[in-house]
Design a binder for these strands. Sequence first.
DNA 1: ATCCACTACCGAACACTGTACGGTAACAGT
DNA 2: ACTGTTACCGTACAGTGTTCGGTAGTGGAT
Lengths: 197, 197
Amino acid sequence: MKSPREKRRARTRETILEAAMQIVMQHGVEALSMREIAGRIDYSPSGLYEYFSSKEAIIDELVGEGFVRLAARMEHVIHTGTALERLEELGKMYMHFALQEPQLYLMMFNRTTLSPFALAEVEQNTAYARLVQTFQDGLQSGEIRSASEAGSRELAYTAWSLMHGLSMLRLTLMHQITEDIDGIHERAFRAFVEQLK
Amino acid sequence: MKSPREKRRARTRETILEAAMQIVMQHGVEALSMREIAGRIDYSPSGLYEYFSSKEAIIDELVGEGFVRLAARMEHVIHTGTALERLEELGKMYMHFALQEPQLYLMMFNRTTLSPFALAEVEQNTAYARLVQTFQDGLQSGEIRSASEAGSRELAYTAWSLMHGLSMLRLTLMHQITEDIDGIHERAFRAFVEQLK
DNA sequence: ATCCACTACCGAACACTGTACGGTAACAGT
DNA sequence: ACTGTTACCGTACAGTGTTCGGTAGTGGAT
């Protein structure tokens, strides 16, 4: 049973996070300041510490939310078609998310401080599990030839790294659009997929 | 002709950069402060502005130096052997650099502010040119089958993205060593190489 | 209804940051 | 010997995250 007090507390907590998320998505995590958050929701900076122990704690929360949103987006990829088709769609969706929410994506993956992730943990994520499953399907049906001793686990991790690498390069070094960079990215990922045949 | 004055100036400039580089490599770019640099070389913080217009300018210089070092490292990869062998060695060397100089690597690739890079510019880099060349060799000799319409340009960019993605994931999400993560990375990259056959 | 503990919040302050400005020496060229 | 430039410093300012002391007001128990 949630008392009215707890409900109010949970609501303002959410308000803080929403304001913080807005700032991050609009101006990047480096523009996030306690005073800016407080100002937007008519609080004093010190008041925020009633809800979060530090600015870092707020960011951690936002990062978690970011992963939830990414996973949700990946859920919307079609479940039908051949394994290779699905794989290509998964890649497209992933990079589309990074490109559409650049500040959020950068915040999620630029953090070295306390990230209690192990690969085993990542593999529990439903979106990631789907990626592994897709490779397993492809290997089983013979769509994907296993040229090496590599199994679905290795290939999935390879695919994720590639999607991440493409996204990061796009958002950091190549954030100035000069040529048909997005076309290059799409072709680069397709090249990988094609080589699996 | 360099006057003694100019030589002195160039030397202190170098001293500043060396101190800054030390701080970054030891404690990360977030620990880099003008006062810390000044303290280490017995200057006042404001004195540094005689040599660099801002802290950002110093970081830009360090990033440039980082790319020089990375390129130098890549030069040391063997030039003999089959294309696939060389490719695997290039990948290993790249990721070895990132792992050995994590703070430097993170600083180089976490920056969104002013990065005047276009893909065309990257391709002028000798180390990157070597990567492209290796793919070209592999395609020509038939070592690498071109399953798609992808040429050496696409494949090289794909390979770079993969190496970068593996390195970044390793340094951010997976910086806590839990399992044989390095083995996983080596296998992941090899899986990619094998699929090229 | 009265008390009391506790929650929610604020204002001020501290230590830190990057940077601008004014002043002061030492230097270089005439 | 004069003079403009260079090199450097001390101070100060606006901004940051965070701590602390205090103050209302709420919620529950007597």
